[in-house]
């Protein structure tokens, strides 16, 4: 162990990393629970279409299915990048 080791930033405990990863994936899976099986595919195809116009990642597309007394609402949100640059051409 070097004498200057105490100056280095300690790496984040792995349990903290695990908790954060789980928090995100569990929230995501809950939001699509009981939703139609085609949602992931729909999400990917939407991404392809949107990508023709702006650069966005898969994570920028959020699909939610909400159930409200008797009917279902498909909620779709796309977070555009800060300076959405339209694709040339």
């Amino acid at each position: 162990m070097g004498i200057l080791d105490f100056l280095k930033r300690k790496p984040e405990p792995t349990a903290v990393v695990a908790k954060e990863r789980l928090r995100i994936i569990v929230a995501q899976e809950r939001s699509t629970r009981g939703a139609p099986d085609y949602l992931p595919l729909l999400r990917n195809e939407l991404l392809e279409v949107i990508k023709k116009y702006v650069h966005v990642d898969l994570e920028a597309i959020n699909i939610n299915v909400e159930r409200d007394s008797g009917h279902e609402i498909l909620e779709l949100s796309v977070a555009l990048p800060d300076h959405a640059q339209p694709k040339a051409g």
């Binding site: 405990p13 792995t14 349990a15 903290v16 695990a18 908790k19 789980l22």
Partner: peptide
């Protein structure tokens, strides 16, 4: 858990 290698009950 005490050394941060395992998720705690609270986590």
């Amino acid at each position: 858990v005490a050394v941060g290698e395992m998720l705690s009950v609270k986590d």
